[in-house]
Design a binder for these strands. Structure first.
Lengths: 105, 105
DNA sequence: ATTCCATGTATCAAGCTTCGATATATGGAA
DNA sequence: TTCCATATATCGAAGCTTGATACATGGAAT
């Protein structure tokens, strides 16, 4: 399944809302939660993470993974926490609008 | 509200499912059905229409509008009618997957 | 008369995102 | 020692949206 432009950032923010994670971990979580239908390559994940950091929605810090590897962890900033809610609502609104057209088109 | 990449084609096909229309008309219909929240500029509409025609989902023919203007009308091909159903189902699947992440993220 | 606006179609450059390839590095298992 | 999973990063290609620009017609208002 293809991911839609703009959707990835929202998913990452939402996943980070439950705690800090590193990029590789976020990719695997999306794969898990989507029942393997959403495969996010690193070529999409890392640019997205850098984008979000640049926008001030996440902070990053080096740390150690559960498997003892060194990795870059990301966590939501206050601004990021607000953004999650906002994007969720926008997504719901968008889906509602598309639904109208899909039913009454 | 921003339209998501790939969504426009589906909306156009769905709107054409109820009968032939011209580009300007489709734009206005999307604006109407979305309660003015989805503004599709001609810079998006015409390339989309040409894209769909190239893919064989629509046919075009010149005709006269209700206001007596000359315009290019588009109608679904058989291939296009199948495509509408397929894209609708893909959209529902996609929304369902996103919902899982938005709820269990 | 003339200006403005809605109706119509079309293309272009800019900007952004996604995707796949590529590079690099570590460490455990076979 | 070879392979795979873990982990980050960047690049070019490809695709879509946006806003600008161009062009043409005709009715309405000043």
């Amino acid at each position: 399944m293809e991911l839609m432009q703009g959707t990835l950032d929202m998913l990452i923010l939402k996943i980070l809302a439950s705690g800090k994670r590193h990029g590789y971990d976020i990719s695997k979580r999306i794969l898990l939660l989507s029942n393997s239908s959403l495969k996010v390559g690193h070529g999409s994940m890392y640019p997205a993470l850098h984008r979000l950091e640049k926008k001030g929605f996440v902070n990053s810090m080096m740390g150690e993974t559960a498997r003892g590897r060194s990795a870059k962890f990301y966590e939501l900033t206050k601004h990021g926490r607000e953004q999650v809610e906002q994007e969720k609502q926008q997504w719901r609104d968008f889906v509602a609008v598309i639904d109208v057209i899909l039913e009454e088109g």
